[in-house]
């Protein structure tokens, strides 16, 4: 995930750049998660091509890297849409018609959950709690939290994204 709203757009895949990113973090104790986060932050996802590089740099087997990569929901392995929309599907949001917001998001963005719209604009992901449960329903769009959502508010937010490209 983006840990900063101002993070620059993801870079195109580049094995040299990937290696440099991996090397920046590889000496940390238990380095694999920080390394995968760094790869994800740099390229927007962890491409299959990254796995052997990570394995080699960290002296792990590809299977070990694959195992960790696929265990965690946030390490996506395919290129995300230009905007990542996470809709909270957990109980507190369900209590405030989060399901309705989720359904609307899916229709409006033109993709199912876990998918990306055909125009490559939006990826839609379910998320299980954003810690905004007193202002439910909640969503996170490109690392930015939103609360008190309904279909109309979601449309406004999406319109803002479209205005800004």
């Amino acid at each position: 995930m983006k840990t900063s709203e101002t993070a620059s757009a993801p870079a195109a895949w580049d094995p040299e750049r990937a290696r440099a990113v991996i090397r920046e973090h590889k000496e940390l104790p238990g380095a694999l998660l920080p390394v995968l986060h760094a790869v994800r932050d740099t390229f927007g996802y962890v491409a299959p091509e990254a796995v052997p590089l990570v394995a080699e740099e960290l002296n792990l087997s590809r299977a070990e890297v694959h195992g960790v990569l696929t265990f965690y929901h946030l390490f996506r392995q395919s290129k995300p849409g230009r905007h990542e929309v996470w809709i909270c599907r957990a109980e507190a949001c369900q209590a405030m018609n989060g399901d309705g917001v989720a359904e609307h998001a899916s229709q409006r963005l033109g993709t199912d959950f876990h998918g990306t719209s055909e125009d490559g604009r939006y990826s839609l992901e379910p998320v299980y709690c954003l810690g905004n449960c007193a202002l439910a329903p909640a969503a996170m769009i490109d690392g930015r939290l939103h609360g008190r959502l309904d279909a109309a508010r979601l449309d406004e937010l999406i319109a803002e994204l479209e205005e800004n490209g």
Binding site: L33, P34, Y72
Partner: peptide
Amino acid sequence: RLAAGAYICGEETSMLESLEGK
């Protein structure tokens, strides 16, 4: 350290595994 979206890692031993890069 940042987690990566796995609820189970709130269980203490899962969390330790995750901190160890597993």
